[in-house]
C-alpha cells in the first residue's frame, strides 16, 4: 500500500527537522522500503499505520530517523585521506605540539564505528605510545552508536577494507563475529551529536573526519555545519571530507590544501604559514 502525501510529508518533515536530511518528493519508494522492516518488527500491519503510530509515539519516530539515514561505511578503503593522516598530518602535529599535549581527533559521523576504530589503529601504529590521543566519535543515530560502542563486527564487515594485519592485531573472535580489543576502545568516547544543531562545548580538535555526511544536507545546512565544526578546530587543524564533498563555494573559512594524494581543508589563517609537505590546492 502506497504512502499518502500527508504521510510522506510527515516523514520528510521529521527527518529534515531531526537530521537535516532532505527527502524530495519521488523518494516515497525509499521511505516505504526502509520503513517496511520497522512496521514488521513492531507488528504494525502496514507502513501507513506505522507512520500514523509514529506521529504519537516518540520512540517510533526516532526509529524512522534512524532507518532513513544511510549508514554505509567501511574501514580504511579510501586509502588517500588515511595515508595523508599518517604520513603528513600526524608527523606535522607531533612537531608542533608539545609531547604532553594529547592529540584530539573527531570522527563526526561515525556510523557503526569503523571510522573511529580505524583512526585509533592508525594512531596506535603511528604514535607508538610516544604520546596520548583521544578520539570523539559521534553520530545522530542511537542504534549506530550502540553498535559502534559494542565494537563487534560480522565477518562480512571485517572483510571490508580492514588490512588483515590490523584484524589480527586489534580483534578477537567472538562467536561468529569479531570483537575490537580494549586497547583501541580505551581512547574513544562515543556521544550522540546532531551536527545540524548547536554542538556541545568541547575542547578544540586537531583533526576532524567529517566524511560522507555533508552530501545528505542542503546548502544552508552544509554551511552552518561547517561553520560550527570550524569553531571547534584548532587554528592549525585539519578537516577531511568524503571524496564527493568539499567546502569550496560553501564556507570560505576553510581553504583546500593538497595533502599527499588527498584533499584536506584547514581554517584559512593556518595556511598562510608554509608547511613542509603541503601545497596549496
Amino acid at each position: 500500500m502506497a504512502l499518502t502525501q500527508q504521510e510522506f510529508a510527515f516523514v520528510s518533515g521529521l527527518v529534515r527537522r531531526e537530521a537535516a536530511i532532505v527527502l524530495e518528493t519521488g523518494k516515497e519508494y525509499l521511505v516505504e522500503a526502509r520503513l517496511l522492516p520497522l512496521a514488521r518488527r513492531t507488528g504494525t500491519p502496514s507502513v501507513s499505520e506505522f507512520v500514523a503510530r509514529a506521529q504519537r509515539e516518540r520512540a517510533l519516530a526516532d526509529q524512522i530517523v534512524d532507518a532513513l539515514t544511510t549508514n554505509e561505511t567501511s574501514w580504511l578503503r579510501d586509502r588517500e585521506p588515511f595515508s595523508a593522516f599518517t604520513d603528513i598530518v600526524l608527523p606535522g602535529l607531533m612537531e608542533q605540539r608539545t609531547p604532553m599535549q594529547k592529540l584530539r581527533v573527531w570522527s563526526a559521523a561515525c556510523s557503526s564505528g569503523q571510522e573511529p576504530y580505524g583512526l585509533a589503529m592508525l594512531l596506535e601504529e603511528t604514535l607508538k605510545s610516544s604520546r596520548q590521543y583521544e578520539i570523539l566519535a559521534t553520530d545522530i543515530s542511537a542504534e549506530m552508536l550502540e553498535r559502534a560502542k559494542n565494537g563487534r563486527y560480522s565477518q562480512l564487515e571485517v572483510n571490508r577494507g580492514l588490512p588483515v594485519p590490523m584484524l589480527v592485531k586489534y580483534f578477537q573472535r567472538a562467536g561468529t563475529e569479531w570483537q575490537v580489543n580494549d586497547a583501541l576502545r580505551r581512547n574513544i568516547t562515543f556521544q550522540k551529536v546532531n551536527l545540524a544543531a548547536p554542538l556541545p562545548p568541547v575542547q578544540p580538535f586537531d583533526v576532524v573526519f567529517l566524511r560522507n555526511v555533508l552530501i545528505y544536507f542542503d546548502l544552508e545546512t552544509k554551511r552552518s555545519v561547517l561553520r560550527r565544526i570550524r569553531s571547534l578546530m584548532r587554528p592549525d587543524g585539519w578537516l577531511f571530507l568524503g571524496a564527493a564533498e568539499t567546502t569550496i563555494g560553501i564556507d570560505d573559512g576553510f581553504e583546500r590544501v593538497v595533502a599527499g594524494r588527498a584533499s584536506a581543508y584547514r581554517p584559512r589563517a593556518a595556511t598562510t604559514a608554509p608547511v613542509g609537505a603541503m601545497r596549496k590546492g
Binding site: 567501511s74 580504511l76 578503503r77 586509502r79 565477518q155 562480512l156 572483510n159 571490508r160 577494507g161 588490512p163
Partner: peptide, 14 residues
C-alpha cells in the same frame, strides 16, 4: 569467505 565483491576490490585497493 563468504565475501561480497566489494571486499575483494577494497583489499586490492589497500
Amino acid at each position: 569467505k563468504p565475501f561480497t565483491p566489494d571486499a575483494i576490490t577494497e583489499k586490492l585497493a589497500l
